[in-house]
Write a protein that binds this DNA or RNA. Sequence first.
RNA 1: GCGCCCAUAGCCCAGUUGGAUAGAGCGUUGGACUACGAAUCCAAAGGUCGCAGGUUCGAAUCCUGCUGGGCGCACCA
Length: 552
Amino acid sequence: MKAKVETLLKDTISQLMKNGDIPEVEINDDLIETPANKSFGDFATNIAMVIASKAKRKPRDVAQIVVNALSHQDMFDKVDIAGPGFINLSIKPISWVNVLKDIHREKEKFGISTYGAGKKVQVEFVSANPTGPLHIGHGRGAAVGDILARILAATGFDVQKEYYINDVGNQMKTLGRSVYLRYMELLGKDIEFPKEGYQGDYIKDLASELKQIHGEKLLALSQDEAIEIAKDFAGNKILDGIKEDLDIFGVRFDNWFSEETLFKQGKVEDTFAKLKEKGLLYEHEGALWFKSTEFGDEKDRVVKKQDGLLTYFASDIAYHRDKIDRGFERVIDIWGADHHGYVPRITAVLEAFGADKDSFHALLIQLVSLVRGGVPVSMSTRSGEFVTLREILDEVGKDVTRYFFLMRRADSQLEFDIDLAKKRSEENPVFYIQYAHARICSILKKAAEAGITPEIKDVDLALLTTGDDLELIKMLAAYPNMLIACAKALEPHRISFYLMELASSFHRFYNKNKVITDNKNLTSARVILIDAARQVIANALSLMGIEAPEVM
RNA sequence: GCGCCCAUAGCCCAGUUGGAUAGAGCGUUGGACUACGAAUCCAAAGGUCGCAGGUUCGAAUCCUGCUGGGCGCACCA
């Protein structure tokens, strides 16, 4: 509906400008807003004030011209000028009910749009090192990334979800050494376990599996060879576990990108050569530097150290160059907020390889703290004392976990209250929403049993324009545009707030109006209405990867 | 010391990218089932949008400076 009004307004304005009725000025895209106060109508525009201030005319005069042009449009009930020059637009109730036909026709596709115009977008998220199981912080990144990607796909982008596997470097070596030492320990050797080694119990489990497979054979090898074997074994095993956890969480990636392949395919060396050609790579004090200051970073960054080893950033450069080479027009990385310092240098990489600065977005996810029984659960990754995503999933389930991670904006810290998450009650918003869905299904079932299964073409939808029913319809009509707003702002949390409002809107309607009554026509109309509400709730939940149960 | 993020009702958070009288939920108080699911609804109370300036027709939103909290500032990954 909003899109319709916006198009109409734009056409009207440009026609008026062509005729010379109002001065020609540049207009930006967002013309229509929803006023905070319902008495101001369904939509409002400040276009007259914008034009007036640019052309030095009186806002209300410009507004009057626009109003005259709009007022004989069929869809409007009322078009008037308010305050300093707002134009308030009230839509005829009968225009609203048409959205029910759209929903009925499009069903699970209702809400899908072509806003993204098929633009190729990559969303990279989680990307945890395969050195240990996913913890709850990774879970938030997984939920946000997955749901954002789904929203982008629903709004017409060509989206790829990717997981970057950091399977090279010191941390992997440390993993190999940790498992190797535990393995030696199992064979009765005296070992000294280093502080920087991985302490968790899962390391001992991996060591014992390693022993089952290889017996004592690794003793015959050199330590380096044995560690290499332990590293590969543990890395693969942990990665399998990560994939399994994500699968349970409902997160499927389109591509798993191994850092190691960058080296094997010579992409890192090739990238260095390209940078050298561009004059963006130089030697200084025996190290090799990337000239990121060229693109606004505060200092240049080392890619090859004095000792000849590459930094982690070196593969990051090659990796992000590869993203551009693969044809992505937008690159979205989802990181923990503690990595915010890396934004300028990665932006620099994208720019160095010819991408537009605005084509790269780093979405920073703030940390998650866990609360149980009202007290914070301490987590220290080092000591191996952390709550894994898997434990949360086993305890509270996929649906609630996914929803809870989307209950806050990504850039605000999140407190995950396990007791609240497990509560099947009013305090838990997930059940509030699912309850609305189940309630509707229950009514529809009862209606069907009574032989009430109306065809939308036979129903008088004009009966639904009185009060709470119209409010509910307006909520349903807002769904497609809400998704576009999520996509525009890269803010997937908005969908969870929308769902709360929609569920609330339905519950209010339900409590005031009986669906199944002796009035046959009204009953039919209301059955159509709540079926549409059911459809939109189901669509939104499905985008969030949450079940929409018919009974609870 | 430099940089980034946050600060909104007793609590936890929204706030449509600068709009009109700042909103939900929880909690508190009072009400609604001999009606399709009360896991619901209705009503009331609750605010110097951290503080102080500035920009303009208009600021929770943008700019500057403070205060308080989180996080970064490696030839670590």
